[in-house]
């Protein structure tokens, strides 16, 4: 696939729309044990960064951040939403999700394609959680004692979900074989 500016623009726009759509419809929120929902809205930024580079990832993060700002202001639903009206909490951390994911991917891509995709999902997702939680603490919406508990309770499962989605989408899109190219139903044949 040839790399082109037009593709970068379109992929950035379309994946931004995915992030915004997931947020607007609440599809991107998965109810979780800890009470606070897991979110997967930052995954498009990770996928965009892996496919089209760090700038595209940052732009998707920007649009995602602005959407969560607008949504927090226009139609807040969670107890922490008012905090996201502050762009330093809602926008700035999201700008860095894509570039971080890209760096993690770039370090291992090629031969270790699948692990590199998983890792970039984890790194991108953790950057999102840690920066957002840190910003929340910095502005007094949370206390610093809660930093590690929140990162563990929500950040880790989010990172897992991001890794799974990133691998599934990018491997399918780029045609990278998984599980040695065998369908998992093959294992059922001997049972």
């Amino acid at each position: 696939m040839k790399k082109s500016v037009v593709r970068k623009i379109v992929v950035a726009g379309v994946l931004s729309a995915v992030a915004a759509f997931l947020g607007l419809t609440r599809l991107g929120y998965i109810p979780w044990f800890s009470g606070a929902s897991l979110t997967v809205m930052h995954v498009p930024a990770i996928v965009g960064a892996v496919l089209e580079g760090p700038i595209v990832g940052a732009v998707i993060g920007l649009v995602f951040g602005l959407t969560s700002l607008l949504q927090a202001a226009i139609a807040p639903t969670g107890p922490l939403d008012p905090a996201f009206v502050n762009p330093l909490i809602s926008v700035l951390p999201r700008l860095l999700v894509g570039p971080a994911a890209f760096l993690a991917y770039a370090a291992f891509r090629g031969k270790l394609e699948i692990p590199a995709l998983g890792l970039s999902g984890i790194v991108g997702s953790l950057v999102n959680t840690m920066l957002v939680v840190a910003a929340l603490a910095l502005f007094g919406f949370l206390t610093w004692d809660l930093f590690w508990p929140v990162v563990t309770a929500n950040g880790l499962p989010e990172a897992g979900a991001a890794a799974i989605v990133n691998v599934a989408v990018v491997a399918a899109w780029k045609g990278v074989a998984r599980r040695g190219g065998k369908a998992s139903i093959a294992a059922e044949e001997d049972r």
Binding site: A168, A171, A172, A177, R178, K182, A183, S184, I185, A186, E188, E189, R191
Partner: peptide, 24 residues
């Protein structure tokens, strides 16, 4: 949504609870 054709076709019967040879 699955990577391999066989797994995607198996999505429905898996949801029905089929496993093993019956699924295949």
């Amino acid at each position: 949504f699955e990577t391999c054709v066989g797994d995607d076709v198996a999505f429905g019967p898996r949801n029905q609870g089929l496993r093993g040879r019956a699924l295949v």
